[in-house]
Every structure is written in structure tokens, then in C-alpha cells.
């Protein structure tokens, strides 16, 4: 298997996703299977091939520097789990 449980735990930590300890083995198996399948890419001969990020290969359009938004704080904070004085609250941040 390309991955062990320890590595999967590390990835989960990087992705900030809690995985229950009893689930870690099946995540490890599934992700390993996916990575095995993906391994076929190694066979592709891609020398001198430019990567393709966006299918249409257009260029970025530019927006005029104009303020178009007004204060919508109350509306936009309706979905927020915890706010006070217009701020979003999170557990204490230590720098």
C-alpha cells in the first residue's frame, strides 16, 4: 500500500479533518487504492508537454477598479455560528 495509517493521520491533520481512530484503516485502504489507480499516470509520456490548468486557455479578464459593494454585514452574518459586535468569533488565537 502506498500509504500507512500514520501518513493518513498526517494528511488529515494538514486538511484539518478529524478522522475517528476506528475509521482510519478504511481511509488508509481506500486512499491507497485510489493512489494505486492514479499511478497509471506514470506511464504517460509527457516530455515537452505543457500542463493544462484550464481547458479553454483564455486569459484573465480585468475588472474596472470601482467600488460596487455596500455594507451587507447583517445579512451576510445571518449564517454565522457565533458573532459579537460585528466580528466573527473563534476560539482564542495565540500568535
Amino acid at each position: 500500500m502506498p500509504l500507512d495509517e500514520n501518513q493518513v493521520n498526517n494528511i488529515a491533520q494538514l486538511a484539518h479533518i478529524e478522522i475517528n481512530p476506528e475509521d482510519i484503516s478504511h481511509y488508509t485502504r481506500d486512499i491507497s487504492n485510489i493512489l494505486d489507480m492514479v499511478k497509471q499516470l506514470e506511464q504517460a509520456s509527457t516530455t515537452d508537454i505543457e500542463p493544462l490548468s484550464n481547458p479553454l486557455e483564455q486569459i484573465q479578464r480585468l475588472r474596472a477598479d470601482v467600488v460596487t459593494e455596500s455594507n451587507q454585514r447583517d445579512k451576510l452574518q445571518e449564517n454565522a455560528p457565533l458573532t459579537e459586535k460585528g466580528l466573527f468569533l473563534v476560539p482564542k488565537v495565540i500568535e
Binding site: V38, L41, A44, T46, I49, E50, P51, L52
Partner: peptide, 11 residues
């Protein structure tokens, strides 16, 4: 992985 996949995408 990623870069190789993007190249495969062009192929």
C-alpha cells in the same frame, strides 16, 4: 501527481 495529471490533461 498534479503536474503530471495536468500534462496528461493536455494529451
Amino acid at each position: 501527481y498534479y503536474l503530471q495529471a495536468q500534462k496528461a490533461r493536455r494529451l
